[in-house]
Design a binder for these strands. Structure first.
Lengths: 359, 359
DNA sequence: AGAGTTTGCTAAACCGGTTTGCTAAACCGG
DNA sequence: CCGGTTTAGCAAACCGGTTTAGCAAACTCT
């Protein structure tokens, strides 16, 4: 490889440069910044002056190495980061995390699979602990690899893991309430929009994924009302506007004419709203829709969305607090586990099945 | 300090532990992972086996130190992170950045002021380069401190800085189009919602902040139509739902009865929509609203929002690409500068001033 | 003036890896 | 069987800081 004669970008000043220039030892330079009381005031001052002239800034990585901590926490997701940011739920969650980490002087690193391998990404991540979100049954080896790196961890919305902290919401109750609401209104032909995942696990209500728990809640309500649900009445839709829109249109093309939609995400529900408008359906006259999450955007949809509220931001805050607690030396107990409440928020996207579907 | 007898969390295995256990040198262990061809296949295999048993994972910070790079890029903002995430614009931008960084195997670190000091936050950030967003005239010393740490930098939506890359959109033209649209429809009494910032700089159209440039565009249109604008017809509103809602309600209380609102952010515009509904105003019958950004949510508001489109996600992508280019050894020229286009998207929140304001 | 203390700074070890230079053993051809 | 080349692995230097132990000079006290 050819070496350029003049490397224009001046190589950054190291501590040895400052020491030489100021005629002192490396230790003195370090003291000048970190323990000035160990130096004659005048010397410390002189060293700092030289440092400023040279544009010296202690190399953060080197500092981390000796400090033994990174003052950074990671938010880890098995899904591509771009996909995460496309989901408003995630931004809200991150907002919650950020409020507490920022306050405590921690940086925030987003970790996503590196060339498809979360394991590799984890190995490279310079963090003191991680908050894991978006985990799914389909990622059992992910949890395992997380456990192996031995970093303090808080799991969000995931099957509890004894040695780690965990935080979630009562998904089953929330979904139950949502389904009951539609059934009470008289709906009998429902479409359920789940989120993408591997095979369904109808058994594990409490041990499975978010989707399992919500589905379980829906099913409980359906059973109460003795309503049968065809297999093609449960569809997968990514938690995005486009995902919900496409899923509903496809169902419609397949000949389904539900009077009510239960969506596991507000984002997809908003997409359904869009699709309904496109099909000339009146909401809630022809079609009722219940979302999940209660994101800020639900107040601006047309009509405002009936949805299951969950304290997303607070979930982020609590997760961060829990993790920071696990990081502190006095180390509160490890396997803390919290479940926050959900509640149905009725707005204007639901009504009794009414004027019927056109066409 | 009392030392506990049994430190339950096993101290993580270091390379020396693996070396001792496998009966080889540290170098051999390193080779086993990074240059296996330098070892007898059988030896390398044995070392890796021992490493796995011990749960050894090379310390990422130590690795960074010798590698001289962090494989991480920073997104830096002078505003609190929580505030950033509350703005959907930011999530969209981050999405763009994430698509390219993720693809190239880079991590993403969010940097915000540490105890109020961005300088300190920068000093601590372990990144190879930074993308700066949300910068403002009010943060001149920020740019200076960024320059001092000497990290490759790309400035987004900020006054161009010769030695760094920069990317933005044609704010002036976008704002001009938005204002012309309302004026053409016949509106004469307008309310402008700017974003929070220090004193206005009416002079610098091209050198100032995003707000300056947009305001300049608005003013150009107003001048064309010879419309005067009272000082209290320009309000500050944070780029959030709540910000826009509160700002419009306050203006209303102050006795203002505009027929059209020009908002510098879609988020605030959506808030105005909310406020209008609250006040019993029909949009666009009684009040027309034009936003800025064209976020996905504009399609779901009631009514869908007329707004100035800017390619937010692409801005993120381009910023990331530009930065990565600056990081690569062959180092494309540094001071690259790009300006992307804006265009007005007319939806249903604008109409001629019509039925008049109720009450 | 000499012993004891304090002040001010330095040399060296350390954090946990990677990489270079080198040596000893194994291998090769003649 | 010997000199030359490969192969396999090690010791030590290095990345850029922080921290501990310790030394010399200055200061205090009697």
């Amino acid at each position: 490889m050819v070496k350029h004669v003049s490397e224009l970008p001046t190589p950054r000043a190291r501590i040895a440069d400052v020491a030489r220039e100021a005629g002192v030892s490396k230790a003195a330079v370090s003291f000048a910044f970190n323990s000035p009381e160990r130096l004659k005031a005048q010397t410390a001052e002189r060293i700092r002056k030289v440092a400023t002239e040279l544009g010296y800034r202690p190399h953060p990585v080197a500092r981390m190495l000796t400090a033994g901590s990174t003052a950074t926490i990671g938010i880890l997701s098995p899904n591509p980061l771009a996909q995460m940011f496309a989901n408003p739920f995630f931004a809200l969650f991150a907002e919650g995390v950020a409020t507490v980490t920022e306050d405590r002087g921690f940086g925030l690193l987003f970790i996503s699979p590196l060339h498809g391998s979360l394991e590799r990404a984890m190995a490279r991540a310079t963090v003191d602990g991680v908050i894991v979100i978006g985990l799914d049954r389909e990622h059992p080896q992910v949890v395992e690899s997380i456990r192996r790196v031995g970093l303090p961890t808080v799991l969000v919305d995931a099957p509890a893991w004894p040695e780690h902290g965990a935080i979630g919401v009562d998904d089953t109750a929330g979904a139950l309430g949502a389904a009951r609401h539609l059934l009470q209104l008289g709906h009998r032909d429902l479409l359920i929009l789940s989120m993408p995942s591997e095979a369904q696990n109808s058994a594990g209500a409490e041990t499975g994924s978010v989707m399992d728990r919500r589905m379980h809640g829906y099913r409980l309500a359906l059973d109460e009302y003795e309503v049968e649900l065809g297999a093609d009445h449960v569809r997968q839709a990514p938690a995005t506007f486009e995902g919900g829109e496409a899923a509903f249109l496809r169902a419609w093309e397949d000949g389904l004419r539900p009077t009510g939609v239960l969506s596991m995400s507000d984002a997809a529900a908003a997409g359904v709203l869009q699709a309904a408008r496109h099909l000339g359906l009146n909401v809630p006259g022809d079609l009722s829709i219940v979302g999940f999450d209660d994101l800020p955007l639900t107040r601006f949809t047309d009509p405002p969305l009936t949805t299951v509220h969950q304290p997303v931001r607070r979930k982020g805050e609590e997760a961060a607090r829990m993790l920071l607690r696990a990081l502190s030396p006095e180390n509160g107990r490890a396997g803390e586990h919290r479940v926050l409440e959900t509640r149905l928020v009725v707005r204007r996207s639901t009504a009794p099945p009414g004027t019927g579907v056109r066409r």
